[in-house]
Every structure is written in C-alpha cells, then in structure tokens.
C-alpha cells in the first residue's frame, strides 16, 4: 500500500544525525571538569553539549563553581550548550534552585523532572532522559508543552524508537548511544551507605569513583555501578553498530555520556560511522581499546536484557 502523500512528505528527514555529549553524571573535581570540557570544545566532533548537575543536589555548589567557565569555553569552540536540571527534586531548596536556574538562563534547558517541564511550559526546551517518554502519546504531549526534542529513557528499544520517529509529533529524538546507562534514582545515597555514612554527612565519597563504583554479585560477577543516589549499569552501552539504523529511523541526536576515557576519540568513531567513513565492526573494535573498565552492551535496543551484547544487524 502506498502511504498517503502527506505521510511520505513527513517521512524522517534523511539529514545527518548529530552527536551530543550528555551531562557529566559523576562527581569530578573542578580542575578535571575544566580540562575535560576544554578538550571537548577543541577536539570532539559533537554538536551539542549538555552541562549541569543532574544527580545530586548536594553536588550543586561544586559542579556550578566551574559552570560559567565551561559554558564559555564550549561556546567559543562552536558547541551548542544545553543546561540540564536535577533528575529528582524533593525539597524547597532544590525547587528554588531549579526556578532560579530556569529564570536566569537564556540557554536551552533540558528538563529532567516534570516540575521543570511545568516551569518551561510554552518555552522551547528539551525533555530529558529522566522524564518518562515511552510512546507517541507522551511525545505529542511534550511537544504541546514546548519540547523540541526528547531524550529517550535508557530502556527504550528499537521498535519503540522507530514508532516514535514515525509519529509526526514534530519533536525530534535523542537516543543514549554510549556510556553506562542510568538505571535508577533514589533519595538514599548508596555510595554513602557503602562507606557507613548518612547522605547528610556523605563527605562526597562519590568523588572517589570517576566512572562509578562497581557492584558485583556474591559470585564476583560484575553487576551494577553506584554513583551516589544514582544506580548505573555496569556495562557500557554502545550503539555504534546500530548508529546507521538510528540515523535511518530519523533520530536527530545520539547521546554519548561523559566517562573518564578519551571522549574526543569516542565521538570521532561515532562520527565516522555515521558519515559512512568507517565500517561499524571496525569502529567497534577500536572503541573497545578506549574503554577498559567494563564490557559493552546494547540489549535494551534489541528489546533484550540491558546487560546483553547482541551481535548482528537491526531489523524491525
């Protein structure tokens, strides 16, 4: 059956998928942040860089001490900078911080909680990965509120991405394509709990682990990674070999999460694959030389267990 003319016109635009760098999820010291973003600004072929603390309100003062410098450096490097908001907002202080951030910034904002979506009502913004957007109905609703792009949740699969891409909501899609995946949030800090501390007196022990703290099963099998109040996958997601399929679906951005690895090189690999300049399998082999701390996974994309790595092409 031939699709109606309007539908063909609204088919995904075959223009190139862009790369974005997600907000830093870890508690790195200020000097390391500045150095990291200086390299990103100068060397990484990413179009958009998200900055701002999304995990823990207690880290805000430290994270924000370098924010102006980082934003300035990225913008001078030609990057589009987006300001990301906290993912779990519980008390008045966190809410006031959110309001002040949204009021005072003329940057594009990534909303990571419905409260931020409320404050941004009618103003163009990005719906972040911590707002549950699983389907075209919610995507359309987010678009009516002013979302121009939605970053899909960690567990979204290829079928759902394709269905949302086809749905003509006018909201473009960003898919998490590299890094440990955010799996859970809590008001309790497990990093502090591990060190026998309470969150109120945490001594910022999460800062000891630049890529997260490994949790193993009692059999010594790698399992998950702690990052303060957040729980991440132990595996590192890589959709490098599915980047072409995502581009064909019309996904506008692939998100790379910052890690303590050579991120400009990681971004370059994704860019060359999207541009058809490197064979995906060759690129994947090169990628493994940059990531030494965990195995790769792509199971969520294939509607499987998130920790799996599935070989082979994507077919809807």
């Amino acid at each position: 059956m031939t699709p109606p003319r309007w539908n063909r016109l609204a088919m995904p635009n075959p223009t190139t998928t862009q790369l974005s760098l997600g907000p830093l999820l870890f508690n790195w010291p200020p000097e390391r942040r500045v150095d990291f973003y200086r390299r990103i600004a100068d060397e990484a072929p990413v179009d958009t860089v998200y900055v701002g603390e999304v995990v823990c309100a207690k880290r805000l003062p430290l994270a924000e001490s370098t924010l102006a410098e980082v934003i300035d450096r990225l913008q001078r490097g030609g990057k589009t900078v987006v300001l990301s908001t906290l993912s779990l907002i519980m008390d008045e202080r966190e809410l006031n911080h959110l309001k002040a951030l949204i009021d005072s910034s003329d940057l594009m904002i990534e909303a990571n909680d419905v409260s931020a979506m409320h404050l941004l009502d009618g103003r163009p913004h990005i719906a972040g990965p911590f707002i549950n957007i699983y389907n075209e109905g919610t995507l359309a609703f987010a678009g009516r509120q002013g979302a121009v792009r939605a970053v899909l949740t960690s567990e979204v699969n290829g079928h759902a991405i394709a269905a949302m891409a086809r749905s003509n909501t006018g909201v473009t899609l960003e898919v998490q394509a590299f890094g440990r995946l955010p799996l859970a949030l809590s008001s309790r800090c497990y990093h502090a709990r591990h060190h026998g501390l309470h969150r109120d007196g945490c001594q910022f022990v999460c800062g000891n682990d630049p890529d997260g703290l490994t949790i193993e099963t009692l059999d010594g099998q790698p399992f998950l990674a702690l990052n303060g109040t957040q729980t991440l996958s132990h595996t590192v997601c890589s959709l490098l070999e599915q980047a072409g399929a995502l581009q064909n679906m019309g996904v506008s951005h692939l998100r790379l999460w910052p890690h303590d690895v050579d991120m400009p090189a990681v971004a370059t690999l994704f860019r060359t694959v999207l541009d058809g300049r490197t064979e995906p399998a060759d690129a994947a082999e090169q990628l493994s030389s940059f990531v030494g701390f965990a195995a790769f996974a792509n199971g969520f994309f294939f509607a499987r267990e998130g920790h799996r790595f599935v070989h082979g092409p994507w077919a809807e």
């Binding site: 960690s154 567990e155 949030l185 998130g306």
Partner: peptide, 14 residues
C-alpha cells in the same frame, strides 16, 4: 528507588 524511574529489573531480566 524513585518509582517508575527504575530499570534495574529490566536490565537484568529484559
């Protein structure tokens, strides 16, 4: 965990 924002079981079981 914050309810509805937890993919641990999904990560392990699919």
């Amino acid at each position: 965990m914050a309810e509805g924002r937890c993919a641990l079981s999904s990560y392990v079981t699919g």
